[in-house]
Design a protein around this nucleic acid. Structure first.
Length: 261
DNA sequence: AAGTGGATCAACCGCATGGTT
DNA sequence: CAACCATGCGGTTGATCCACT
């Protein structure tokens, strides 16, 4: 579709912002707001494209931006949220007041990712089966700990969500619905509308379907053959709404159960 | 002091998405 | 319904800093 070319006009400035430019942008936004980023630079007298102005404002000039290093609590929150949401930096930033998606993304790539890698290197898991190997092929930093939560939300009564394993863009979440445990669990169908109908199904990043018992036991070393669990993998393509899982996690007070790394 | 390489982070780029005409 | 437009998002880049040799 017709995507508007950005900064197509010659003469628009690029690169680092000067204090003067910052001040012009701040003054303009404080006076007139930023209803139209595209028109803003022209009206404010800036030789920048609207996109650049927006980014500068959002990531640096906004009055509610928090400055300084991330606290240990913030870092742990990022780690937990990344487990639940993957690389959804804006979603993570929305839950960290004063922090921007760009900042969080940078912190993740420069600090947290490495820290997890180091910790996991000293905590290596040995692969034991071909199916396990298949899943771990792209797994650069598996997290061997388990994060659990439960929810008493009326819509999802007695739901327990357990993050079994996470790697780059894949989360494996076991959902135990006590109400549905008594229902038929032979339903081997995948539904994009609700993971509750994904009984005993796992989808990996190539949309392959694996038997629940083989996959789960390969991760935690236990036989889940009789589990009436729902196994769910987010493959990072937005087929499933990880916000849903995050909400369950938060409602259950999951943030207090931080995995040890 | 100069050179080098890794770490950091602000900014850019391209694509996706949703709203409007 | 299609085309257009504005904005948001995530990945990537490149300038700068800093420690080390």
């Amino acid at each position: 579709m017709g995507r508007a070319p950005c900064c197509e006009k010659m003469g628009l400035k690029k690169g680092p912002w000067t204090p003067e430019e910052d001040q012009i942008l701040i003054n303009y936004v404080q006076k007139f707001g930023h209803a139209n980023w595209r028109a803003l630079p022209k009206q404010a007298g800036l030789l920048r494209c609207g996109k650049s102005c927006r980014l500068r404002w959002i990531n640096y000039l906004r009055p509610d931006i928090k400055r300084g290093n991330f606290t240990a609590e913030e870092e742990q929150t990022i780690i937990n949220l990344h487990q639940m949401l993957g690389n959804r930096w804006s979603a993570i930033a929305a839950r960290l007041p004063g922090r921007t998606d760009n900042e969080i993304k940078n912190v993740w790539h420069t600090h947290l990712k490495k820290r997890l890698l180091n910790n996991n290197n000293s905590n290596n898991l040995s692969s034991s089966s071909s199916k396990r190997q298949r899943i771990d092929d792209n797994d650069q930093h598996p997290i061997s700990t388990t994060t659990s939560c439960s929810s008493s939300d009326s819509d999802f009564s007695s739901v327990t969500a357990e993050l079994l394993h996470q790697n780059d863009n894949k989360e494996i979440v076991v959902i135990k619905d006590e109400e549905e445990e008594e229902e038929d669990n032979s339903n081997n169908q995948v539904s994009s509308s609700s993971a509750r109908s994904c009984t005993n199904i796992i989808i990996d990043d190539e949309s392959m379907i694996w038997p629940l018992d083989q996959v789960v036991s390969s991760f935690d070393g236990h036989d889940h053959h009789d589990d009436e669990s729902l196994l769910f993998v987010n493959n990072g393509n937005d087929e499933y709404d990880m916000e849903f899982w995050y909400d369950i996690f938060i409602k259950a007070g999951g943030s207090t159960e931080l995995p040890e790394f």
